[in-house]
Design a protein around this nucleic acid. Structure first.
Lengths: 246, 246
DNA sequence: CGGTCTCTTGACCTCTGTCAAGTAGAGTGG
DNA sequence: CCACTCTACTTGACAGAGGTCAAGAGACCG
């Protein structure tokens, strides 16, 4: 089932992600690799999951970026999580009746989609896989707490720098080279929705970071120019990403 | 093992919390009730868990309030979660090597403390209990996402109102009558640290809420006077608390 | 090459932060 | 019951980070 040649085959990407924080036996790994699944392609801003729905699939991000989002009644939008290639997108629906947020494609994406019932059977039969799922959930929650700290207690410059540092770490760990090579996938409006700012102020702050030499820009592309400087202005530490977890 | 008469005996409080969102068989319930445990009393601001530590206990809040907290290098503090009586305080250490935040008593508290090894044995033997643990983790994460939305996209007045609504819901569900009866347990400084504001501005905003009739104050005590008005100014909906979960 | 979506920029405004001094509860000891 | 003390709460004047509005420029796309 090699649906695209430019993405890892089948379940390899999910396996890689789980192995990055959890130990799985050869049998566990084989069981995951053998899961029936299909590939689905979506356009930017297509919905993967809507708040209030029930879901019976377990989507994994094979390529591209996605985000979780909630809105206020008067139209404010807050991005609650950014998902990068390899990330499982919804273990929650295995345990809760209703989805409590919206999940959308940020860029064009390829999803690997497993039937939740199939995955649930695996989790029930294999404790190590169940454990890996929980670790994944807990790490995402830890990242959420860090965003709460950033948006509550840091100014716009530090928030922006912190987000760049975090994405750089996570992308590096996932083997895609980080933001020194790669360009930031978010538009300024999306950055604003992550950071609780307005697009105008993100624009101003981006210019300040550029002037300081921390980032460089090429047209609409943003990438990291001086990681050390960025880490300093962000007061960044990677402890909350739990990277040392076996 | 009835250590205090003014709190529910033994494990009843944890059991009540888990049953509020999960189904457990009579045997599962008995197994939880039979867990060896002890009671520990702490003073306000005592640490229950420190960032960076490992923990081998599973504390449950029997009475009083507690909070999770992270700080920035330059001294900013953000409260990441508020725990009310009945809440389990740390399932995370069962799955992750290091604690990623500080956990402190907000008021004087009584903790029921279980050895993590004992609890882990239970979770491994009883799938329904394992499931209840995950549901608990997921609901806390959903609350965290709502705080992210509030602090990012609502002004001080709505944030404060929203927090009151949330605590009122959660306290009502836990059977303690909600904030119409009970007084808000947080000081203005602590409210500020939850909401990403300063104590001075919390004070101003509290006065505005009082003028509008939504809350009433008696000395240092705050309680809800007009829940409907509070819900309106907060744009509050309880969907994110997953109360309908069996 | 026209259309559309992002990004830029400037002027102005306001919400929230800062500083600093004073007041009032709540607890403690006499 | 009254000092005394420690917090927590209040209040006002002022400052500044970030929001709002609006117009124009630049990218990317078919």
């Amino acid at each position: 089932m090699f649906d695209r040649d430019h993405a890892p085959p089948g379940m390899a990407i999910l396996l890689g992600k789980l192995l990055s924080h959890s130990l799985l036996s050869t049998e566990d790994q084989a069981a995951i690799a053998a899961l029936p699944h299909e590939t689905r392609c979506l356009e930017p801003n297509d919905y993967i999951l809507r708040a209030g729905e029930r879901s019976d699939i377990c989507p994994v991000l094979r390529s591209g970026f996605a985000y979780r989002q909630r809105t206020t009644t008067d139209g404010g939008r807050e991005i609650l999580s950014i998902k990068i290639p390899g990330d499982p997108l919804d273990f929650q629906s295995m345990y809760l009746a209703a989805v409590d947020h919206n999940l959308q494609a940020l860029t064009a994406v390829e999803l690997t989609v497993i039937r939740m019932a199939d995955f649930e059977r695996l989790v029930q039969a294999r404790p190590a896989i169940a454990r890996a799922v929980i670790v994944d959930i807990l790490i995402e929650a830890s990242i959420g707490r860090q965003w709460l700290l950033n948006n509550g207690r840091r100014n716009a410059l530090a928030r922006l720098a912190h987000l760049f540092c975090e994405l750089n770490c996570r992308l590096s760990d996932s083997g895609s080279g980080g933001l020194v090579r790669q360009k930031m996938p978010l538009t300024q409006e999306q950055l604003a929705d992550v950071l609780g700012l307005t697009p105008v102020h993100v624009n101003r702050t981006l210019k300040a970071l550029e002037r300081s030499g921390a980032i460089a820009r090429d047209g609409r592309g943003i990438h990291i120019a001086d990681l050390g400087s960025l880490i300093d202005t962000a007061d960044f530490s990677d402890f909350y990403l739990h990277r040392e977890q076996r």
